[in-house]
Structures are given as structure tokens and as C-alpha cells.
Write a protein that binds this DNA or RNA. Sequence first.
DNA 1: CCCCCCCC
Length: 615
Amino acid sequence: MADVQLTNGFCARLNNSENEEDELYNSQPVIQFLSFKRVPPSGGASTVDRYRVIVSDGEHFQQSMLATQLNHLVEEEQVLKHSIAVIEKFTCNLVQGKKLLIILAMRVLKKEAEKIGNPTPLQLRGSSSGPSVEMQAQTPAVQSPAPSTFMNTPNVTNTTAPPAQPARQQTQAGRGGRHAIYPIESLSPYQNHWTIKARVTAKSDIRTWSNQRGEGKLFNVTLMDESGEIRATAFNAAVDEFYDRLQEGKVYLISKAKVNLAKKKFSNLNNEYELTLERSTEVEECPDATDVPTVKFTFVDIAGLQELPKDAICDVIGIVKEVGELSTITSKATNKEIPKRDLTVVDKSRFSVRVTLWGKQAEQYNATDQPVVAFKGAKVGDFQGRSLSVMSSSSIFINPDIPEAHLLRGWYDSIGAEQTYQSHTNTMPSGGGVNFDRAEIRSLHDVKTSDMGLSDRVDTFCSRATIMHIRNENIAYPACPTQGCGKKVLLMGDSWRCEKCDKSYPKPEYRYMISMAVADYSGQAWFSGFNDVGKAIFDISADELMDIKERDDTKFNQMLERAIGSTYNFACRARQDNFNDQTRVRYGISRILPLDYREEASYLANLLLRSEWSR
DNA sequence: CCCCCCCC
């Protein structure tokens, strides 16, 4: 390869230019990498490790950060110490008075090279002889305050420096021209003068709120480019400004929006930040943009929904077999009436699922001819086994022009229309349809002192509790051995009769009917459970346990003893029971899960991380 | 500044 020239003077220009020069920022300097250091997110905004690097222009060296989309170059060893690269896109942050080069895009010109020249640290204009911009490998002596931990602060002692200002502010505003397009992935609160070119992939209804802090209205859009996605929100006056202008599917140049930390627990998008559209935000449509990707789907088939946890976000494509009427429900939380419409959607997996549309999407849905429909970002629910809810951040595509849709259309029109489809109602474990959600674990004391299960409601809750006692009478009952029946059978002469099946059998199949006392830190309660619960506790069938009971009562009692002291996660249903003029609430187990300590620990670790984020 | 996605 021909020798490459470093862009001498680049570091000096970057650091010494009083007014920012657009030519500098539009240039593509050639530099040499002197070192790479992987730095952790250090408890602030980011969750991704970054690379702190030193670059040289042959004369001076300069501390820099790689934008995370370039991490892979280091990790795949496409760039090494002393590699020479052209920086195709960069920006600059002022961190505690020091310029920090942010490399947004680069191309390696020469991967293996010798160190060129003897670069020295820059002597900064106006700075005392003290700290240089030389980056120390050790932990910074001065940590910048919370949000600035976006990157590790270099080792500087000048703590009286003015707050960080975007480096490019002056000229960009002055010129009034368009800036370079920045990838969404590179947006951060430390860099104000960007423009993104992004497609609106989802747009919510206008929503109003009213709480102790005030009231107002807002809407959200999801913006996407090739680098990633970000959510943008407009409030009040900005709603009037942008609600009609921003249309789903279209591409816009957007600048001068505010970049805030996203609160992770409220967002499914893979972005640390979100945008607030203000009245001064600039939005310009790009009518013919073809360089911004359209929505990409990762479809899961409808049968596969049972593998996903409740609240998972997924993409589904299917045929709308049935369209429900537009109806309204009254939200328990807000007492508001909310329009809704249920669709029954089927696919080649021969499963059907109920998909609920809300608000405007429910009102505006009008396709009655069994179209192909694709959902991006639908939420998995557990109603009747599995259900889907279309969120305001989801998008609906009727007859999208994608291969999956054409295949599905052809299949449905030829054979699919005549098939039968299975619902998830009977396919989920333990039937009852209550899933265990550790975020919803309630203490037994809390459960018993709440109004759960009262006034003929069936309420569900989760509990993590330890078995204290298992009642040994009626631990199992003789049941009909026919698959899926499970009704109690009666001994008639020498055979067992099932009323439901209208059949007699030589032998019953015993099924568990467990009643047990459980306790957690707050108190104790009686839980009851059926066959799955007994099998989970004893690890043998009820037939086998009854056999032991008959032959060896001591061993049977030992087996009961052995189950004491085990802790499980339970999903339960609380239901009122009227018995001898007495009202009490009974707790039925719909799922029982052994503790997985690795998972529990990882859950707790994530909780800590989340509370860190939402501070 | 919202953070709800509801109901059965």
C-alpha cells in the first residue's frame, strides 16, 4: 500500500480555533491511533462500554472517543494500535474546558503501521502550564457529575472550567445552512448542533394528562435511521406545531430538538436518549428519501407467542380472519372511555391470536376483506393464554409489500381459509392463564389484608413463599383417565365411572389436589393447587404417590416431610368462597415455579440498574 | 412536562 500522510496540524486546529471552522468539521483528517482503552459506562447514562482512544496527527496527539457504533472495529481487531485511518465524520465536545474529539465514522487506511513521528501533547491557549490534554490511563482524578459520565472525564485538575458547550454552535447558527447528517446513534445531550434524517415509524394519538404537576397534551413518534431508533415527544404548543406535519412512514430532517436521558423502564427502544420536540425544533420533510430504511420486521409466528413472556414486544404477520366491532371499555385507572377493537389473526402455524387495537387505530381500522396485516412492536398479553395489544408505539401495516405478506396471501387463499386454528387458551402451562411476573410479587400479609378476591372478583397475584405444611388427607382424587377430562370418577362395582364421558374404566388416574400452608417473611396463607402443582412438588405422579401411600404409610409421610421448606414462585388466583354462611377468600395456584437462583440474582441486579437509570 | 396501552 502506498504511504499515507497524516493530516499534520489537525489537533492544533481542532484545539486552537477560536471560531469553529466548518471546513475543519467537513474535512476528513487522516490520523494514527496511539492507544485504545475500553471504559465502562461508569454509572451514568450509557450502558455500553466505549473506547477512549488517543489519535495522532504526527505532531500532536488528541484524546478522543469512538462512537459506540464503531466499537466493533476495535473488538474485531479491524483497527489496531498504530493503525492509520481517515476520520470521515466527527464532532467535538468540550469537557471541562478540554476538547474531546468524537469519532463518528472512520475508515482504516492502513491497519498495520509503525508509529509516525514523535507526537507531543498540545499546549493549550490560555491554559496554565498545568494540565495537558494528555490522557492518563488510570481512573480520572475528577469525575464529572452524573450525566456527563457519558464518557470518562480525562484527568484534569481544572474544575473551574465553564460548563460544556457544543463546539459547533457559532458557525452552524451563523451560516443558517444544513449541517452534516448525524446518525441517531450518535445523538447525546452533549452535542446540540446536529441534524438527523429519520423516518417516522410510529406515531401515537394525542394524549392529555392531568396530575398534581399540571396538565397538558402530548404525542410521541418513533424515529428511525440506519443507525437506530429514538423516541421523540412533543408537548402542548409543539403538539399543534408537529402533530399534522409528522406523518407515519415519511422521512424528515430534524434538528434543534432537545436530547434527554430516556427513562429505561418506560421505553422499549434501544436508545439511551429521547428527544423533546420544541417549537423551535426544525422539521423538514424529505419527500423522496430512499436512503433511510423502512421498518424491519422480526416476525414471530403465532404459535411461537407462547415462548415469549408476557409484556414482550414482538412483530407478527398474519391474516385478519375476523374483525370485531368497535367498542369502548372504561379504564379502571382513569375512568376514561377508550375505544377498542379486537382482531382475530391467524398464520401458517395454525394458531390464532386476539389482537386488540386501541384509540384511533381501533376507530380507523376498516379492512373487512381478510387482509394480511403486519404488526411492528405489539405487546404480548396473557389473556386466554396469549393475546396481543397494539401499543401507541406499534405500527400496523395492511397488505404490506413484503415477501412474507405475499407468501401468506397465497397460502391463505389456497388452503389457509379452510383450516382450523388453535387458540392459546389451552396450550399455556397450567391453563389458568396467570403467569408469574416477579415484578408483581406481593407479600402474603399484603395479599390477605387487601381486597383481593372480594366481591366476586377473581384477582391474580404472585408470591414467593415456602411450604410449611401439606395436608395429607385428600391429597389426590381418582380422576377419569381420558386425556383432557380429569373429572372425578366414582367406584361402581369393580369399575370407575366418569359421568362426563359416560364411560367406565377399570382403573382411575389419580390427580393431585394439594392444600398447603405457605409462608413468606410477612405471614402465612393456605394455597391450593391441582395436578401440575403436586407434580412440581413431589416430582412423581399422583398415581405413584397414592401407590406409596397404600403400601408404605411411613414413606408417604416422609415424602410429605421432604417437601417442607422448599421455596417457590407462585402465580395465584384469589377468589371468594361462601361456605356455611362464612365468606373467605381462597388462593388457587395457577403456576408454581422452582427458584432459579441465577435468574433471581440477575433480576435483582437489573432492578438496581434500573433504579439507577430512573434517578 | 408523559411513562397509560386500559376491558374480559
